[in-house]
Structures are given as structure tokens and as C-alpha cells.
Design a binder for these strands. Structure first.
Lengths: 228, 228
DNA sequence: TAGATTGTTAATCGATTAACAATC
DNA sequence: TAGATTGTTAATCGATTAACAATC
């Protein structure tokens, strides 16, 4: 490990991979393994072992040369790094189809996370509840955030209101947003906003299929034809 | 434009951005604009204009120097590139919470896409339908794919069965998979598989929040402490 | 033509990977 | 000690960006 305290910025893709490493470790642990090699763990995710080791190196040393990694120990380290040793309270903003679905989605109710409030602006919905979680009015967000200690907002409002809603969320003091609205949100630098854009992923598939199908001499399909 | 037919590989991030450009164009068109500058379009997505122009350059020339882009024309070009001028039939594999939610999700029923079949292996579910779409048994996938001309599979099965299911999907001739299972899938090279990992995105948020909270002298929080 | 903005090149930046020294 | 595998460095690869020539 380096001696000085100078810290390289950790790329976001690295953090994302940490979460995937952890998932594999937990599976292997359940299956009874105690130890794992960087090669095994990396292969499981179709990555290079050197990438795994580089990712871990941002945070310290977790293995034993010649031996590999103790699964329990590495998993615990990753949980700490990812902040999963504490509990985060989530508010889902926008109780439509997607919001309701996410509420019931396992991934959001895993260890470390808890949906603590639902928010909407539709008077028909406000006051009722879904899966036992109360729906509050967006105007009451600041109070709800304080009372329930909300730290994460999941934005599932329609595109046209997404930006205004994001601003309200930020003003309420929330520092982390998972944005499902198909609109680019640029919050102040202390706030992180992760876009989840299913519709765009789908269009990548469509593009790929189009490339496969198209006839003609060009092996890669529709890219930049040499006409002119 | 280059004269020879040699084509640079298009990065996947570029294709993803094309889909986002298109969304902005459609919004501007609805608002009555006829023309847009690379700077306006890029700003809307918090990108650099040069990136937008580079992205488009993979596919050809779509603007007029000094004038910008004709919105209708560029949008039409992007739709063609993304393969949205034709219709894609989707099968959702795994009719649990998430699968059912996606079925109702607007993004999946946009122009260009249509959920044509649901697939499960639970005899309780097979034979019934959801939102008017029939649920078929996974064993019948090959026939369903042929009959309904399915091109895209959305994988929403539980993690333990994800890999086996993906293999069945590939064997049935499907060339595009949107994978919601928290498992890495490496299909043969002609098949594209896009992972959607909401749980990992959430953990990136958690990591970020942990970095904000942690006390101590280090400005970036928990990264690699100088102990030792 | 002069002014503006694209399309394209080259420079920059950042992430991945191979290779190996450190060390169990 | 010899064999194995980590942690780390340096080389490679690929994507972003600034800058400008082309051209409307």
C-alpha cells in the first residue's frame, strides 16, 4: 500500500464492479467456500483478474499472496466500502406503474436499504398507501425527509416534471438520486444522480439487431456507408 | 465524409447517446422548433458539442455548416440508425414482480417495440395472461419465437436460473437480451446482452453517501487510508 | 463576402491490461 | 526454499475534448 495519504479518485465503474464482486462472494460463501482466487472471482464476471486486483487496490490490500482472498473478510470489506453496514432510507418519488413496481422489487429492499416513504402530487393517491408504505404529498417532502431521515430518492415521475422534481428533492437535502425519468439531471456537485435508462438500453439492442440483419457487403451493417 | 468504406467500430456509449439525442429532438420538435445547434442539443444532455458531433460522424453528415441541424431530418436519421423504423417483438422471460411491472412500463411499449409473449416455468402461471399477453411455458420458447417472430428477450428470472435460461433463449435463436438478473451473462459473440443492474446503481449511491458522511481529514472519505 | 457552425483531426484524458516484483 | 498468487507499475487501448479547416 502507498504510504502517503494521497488518494486516487475512484472511477464509478470500479464502485459498480465492487458491488458485483460482493454478490459473487456471497454466493460462493453460501456454497461453502472459504477462499477465492482473483482469477476465479474475475472469471465469474467475465473480467480480467488484473482488473479485479486493480479495483481492490484503490481501497487497500485484502488478499494473501500465494493464497488468494478470504471470502468472509473480503466481503465484509466490500460491504463497508459500499456503505452497506448501515441502513439507508429511500423515498420513491412518483407512485405510477414503475414506482409501484420498484417498491415491490427485491433489489430495493435488500440488506442496507429500506423504502421509507412514497411521494406523489396526485391528491387521489396522497394519504393512501402501497405495500404498507404511506404516500405523502410532494409539498411535504422536506418534513418527510427530516422525520424519516431519507437519504436516497428514486425518481419515477413523468419526463416533463422530472427536472422540477429533482430540484425539489435536492432542496430537501437529499444527496443521492436514482433517476428513472428519461431526462438528463445535473445536480450540484455534492449530489450524485445515477441515470437508469431502460428505454435506451432497449434501443441499443435494436441497433445491434439492425446491424445483424442488414444485407450488403459491409460486415458491420449500417455504419457510415461509403457513398458520396 | 471519408471516401473509403473502412468503418470504425461504433462504441456502445455512442449508440446509447444517439437514443438520448433522439429523445431531445422529439421534444424540441413537439415544441415547434425546426432547427437545432449541436451546442443546444448537447447542453440539453450536459454533454460537449464536440462529443455530439463526433457521435454523429460515425454514421455520416447530418447538419449544415453555419446553420445547425434540421430536427426532422436528424431525428429520422437517428431512428433509422437505431432500427426504430421497424417493429421488434419482445418476450419477457420470468413473470414475477419485475417482469409484470415491465410489461406495463411505457418504455417497453414505445414506438418500435411490442411485448408479444410472456414466458414462465410455473404451471400456475402458464396458460393465463397479464395485460392481455399470454403466458407460455419456457419449454415452448422455440415455437413461440418462431410464431411470434420474437427478436428480443427480457430476462427477469431469479438469479439462480438466469444462466440456464439465457442459454435456452440463445438456443431459441434470440440475438438480443436485456438482462435484469444480477448475474453476468456472456453469450456467443453474435448475441448482445445488456445488463440492467438497479441494485448495483443503488450501491453506488450508498458508496457516495458514505464518502460524504465520513469524518476525518481526508476530503474523499473512505478511500485507501494511509494507515500501516 | 463575413459570420457562423459543422465535420474532422490531433491532443488529452482515463480506464484496462500485461507483466513482474513482492511476499505468502 | 520453491511455487503460487497478490499488489503495483508501466504499456496499451479507447473515449473525450479542443481546436480548426471546410463550407454553408
Amino acid at each position: 500500500m502507498t504510504e502517503n495519504g494521497i488518494q486516487k479518485r475512484v472511477p464509478q465503474v470500479t464502485v459498480k464492479r465492487l458491488s458485483r464482486y460482493l454478490r459473487v462472494l456471497e454466493r460462493f460463501q453460501e456454497e461453502g467456500s472459504e477462499t477465492i482466487l482473483s482469477e476465479e472471482l474475475a472469471n465469474e464476471l467475465h473480467l480480467k483478474p488484473s482488473q479485479l486486483r486493480k479495483d481492490l487496490a484503490y481501497f487497500g490490500e485484502f488478499g494473501t499472496r500465494g493464497m488468494g482472498y478470504n471470502i468472509e473478510r473480503l466481503a465484509e470489506a466490500l460491504r463497508r466500502i459500499l456503505g452497506l453496514h448501515r441502513q439507508w432510507a429511500i423515498a420513491i418519488i412518483g407512485v405510477g406503474n414503475l414506482g409501484t413496481a420498484l417498491l415491490r422489487y427485491k433489489g430495493l429492499n435488500e440488506k442496507g436499504f429500506r423504502v421509507a416513504a412514497l411521494i406523489d402530487d396526485d391528491p387521489e393517491k396522497v394519504g393512501s398507501s402501497r405495500s404498507g408504505i404511506h404516500i405523502y404529498h410532494i409539498d411535504d417532502l422536506p418534513e418527510v425527509v427530516k422525520e424519516k431521515n431519507i437519504q436516497i430518492a428514486i425518481l419515477t415521475v413523468p419526463a416533463p416534471s422530472a427536472r422540477a422534481t429533482a430540484e425539489i428533492v435536492v432542496k430537501a437535502g437529499i444527496k443521492a438520486i436514482l433517476n428513472f425519468a428519461p431526462v438528463s439531471i445535473k445536480p450540484p456537485p455534492e449530489v450524485i444522480c445515477m441515470p437508469v435508462d431502460i428505454s435506451s438500453e432497449l434501443k441499443i439492442l435494436s441497433h445491434h439487431l439492425t446491424g445483424l440483419e442488414e444485407p450488403g457487403d459491409s460486415p458491420r451493417g449500417h455504419e457510415k456507408s461509403p457513398v458520396k
